[in-house]
Design a protein around this nucleic acid. Structure first.
Lengths: 230, 230
DNA sequence: TAGTGGTCTAGACCACTCA
DNA sequence: GAGTGGTCTAGACCACTAT
């Protein structure tokens, strides 16, 4: 073996696991042994094995060695991107419509998420996202204007809040909840579907550092599917 | 700075991005400069920056340098674990009930997923997963017995197919689709909910190497929520 | 073509944890 | 106490790509 990178080695090791050469739960050779076998430095094996550990394929313990994970926890990863992009990759034309844009004191449930006081106003928006002029998703959003005061001057008719925030606010953290809900009259009206239709719902709260930025509830149109691979 | 690991440096760099010191889209110093600043080897900076690149916080190009990602694609990550564990972490008692277990030739739509021939039989199962004796989820599954013949001898009354496969079959790949569906009569019966209730649905197909193992459609009970953090 | 990140190496020391 | 992985370093060469 002359041409080995940690990527290639990672794939080869993974192959040996998939092939069953090392069974579930089995101990695999230590780094030095593998380094000799693949004729490379221990560091290189280390990188490959660490990557497999991140992936959840193996479990590593000092002194305990490296084992094939007994019950691999597979992870589905979803890119939470801008709705405009989601629509445009399907070849459709994107447009959005702000139904409501106003400042008001949020209800208690929202205050808890944004951690604002009882008297603090926040920006409330109802937006319909359209693909080829048909409703694609409907969102209800609260923005903490104390954390992002510039939003009051943003041209929200041209650029959706969604996109403005992503483009403006630096790297943020967040919570996401996916669920299914029956459409009520309000949502059914916005999405032009039947009352009672099963809708895929995304609930998200994001913050930067200690500051809570926004919380949103997004209803996708009936029949929406979220794809991913393991 | 004396005590620096690539983890700490990674956090510090991320902090400088979050704080706005390096704006969205801005070029950040090159590895050698950062190595001097943090008084460490370039390799250490490299590891930290590569991690941030994996995370989607920065974009790196040879000769082009490292930039803060303009439109960070945030990823929500979900652990696809065993249902029994999902139930037990909530403190509930898990149990499962196989309603149907039989070999038959799958319909065309399933043959496409498992890539089996028109005459090849597959194992079909309908299983109800219970938490504290209430329905938690209902699954319909097809298993390619050609790929996993041992399953015919497995004690599927004691251990769910789900768990048996995870414990037996080595590392696998898969596709996942999440969606929302209205309960029909069959599913409503299994989950003891109303016809028309919005249900959270998971569709998954998994394989090892070239062999397709199983395809499953899982209906969670009404009100189920899938949590994650960005 | 020059400048940047990508990777490898050999050696070293440390930190954890199993027996 | 001994064996394993975790990490750092300094130097080197390669690969890509912006200009």
């Amino acid at each position: 073996m002359t041409t080995n990178s940690h990527h290639k080695i990672r794939q080869m090791l993974k192959g040996r696991i998939e092939s069953g050469e090392w069974e579930l739960g089995a101990l695999i050779p230590r780094e030095l042994a593998l380094a000799e076998e693949y004729n490379c430095a221990r560091t290189t094996i280390n990188r490959a094995l660490q990557a497999l550990a991140d992936e959840g394929v193996v479990v590593r313990k000092r002194k305990g060695g490296t084992r094939v994970c007994r019950m691999p926890v597979r992870h589905a990863k979803f890119g939470i991107s801008i709705l405009r992009e989601q629509v445009e990759v399907t070849g459709s034309e994107y447009r959005h419509q702000n139904v409501v844009t106003k400042l008001k004191v949020p209800p208690k449930s929202v205050r808890a998420k944004l951690q604002t006081s009882e008297s603090q106003e926040a920006l409330f928006l109802q937006t319909i996202h359209l693909a080829d002029n048909s409703p694609y998703a409907y969102e209800e959003r609260w923005v903490n204007v104390e954390a992002v005061p510039e939003i009051l001057d943003a041209p929200l008719d041209e650029i959706s809040v969604n996109e403005w925030l992503v483009r403006t606010v630096p790297f943020s953290s967040g919570d996401v909840i996916f669920s299914a809900e029956n459409a009520d009259q309000r949502v059914a009206g916005a999405l032009e579907c039947q009352i009672g239709d099963a809708l895929f719902v995304l609930d998200r709260t994001t913050w930067v550092g200690e500051k809570f930025i926004t919380t949103i509830k997004l209803y996708y149109r009936s029949g929406y599917q979220l794809y991913s691979s393991l």
